[in-house]
């Protein structure tokens, strides 16, 4: 009995919500003035005709640079919590930090060897 009551409440809430949405969209459809014309639909660029393309090509190399930047970015972000607990952990913290740096360094060396760091 209780389950049915809960279910009925759920269904009722769903129906009321659905009716509300339809009523609002219906009111907008009925009342909102809509007079589209070419000038109104034209791309807005501060009142001028748009210049050039909306899609601007970027050099693909920025992608590699962004990835390599992430190496240093994450490195710095992870160093701060280590510094906070440095006293409690001691030498182990230094060793773990160096391993972490070494792992990231391998990635950097790989990118370096592949010639990603060279711009041309």
């Amino acid at each position: 009995m209780d389950t049915y009551a809960n279910l009925a409440a759920l269904v009722l809430a769903g129906l009321v919500g659905l009716a509300f949405v339809f009523a609002l969209y219906g009111a907008v459809k009925l009342l909102a003035p809509s007079r589209p014309y070419a000038l109104k639909n034209a791309t807005y660029e501060c009142g001028h005709d748009p210049l050039g393309e909306a899609w601007v090509p970027y050099r693909l190399q920025y992608y590699a640079f962004a990835i390599i930047f992430l190496i240093f970015d994450i490195e710095t972000a992870f160093f701060y919590p280590i510094v906070l607990v440095w006293r409690q952990i001691g030498t182990l913290a230094l060793v773990e930090t160096l391993i972490f740096v070494a792992v990231l360094l391998v990635g950097l060396l790989y990118a370096w060897k592949r010639g990603v760091l060279k711009w041309d």
């Binding site: 003035p33 109104k40 009142g47």
Partner: peptide
């Protein structure tokens, strides 16, 4: 002036 006229025409009524 023409730019203002154009912007005005791109605004929806009212």
């Amino acid at each position: 002036a023409p730019i203002f006229v154009r912007v005005y025409n791109q605004m929806p009524d009212p």
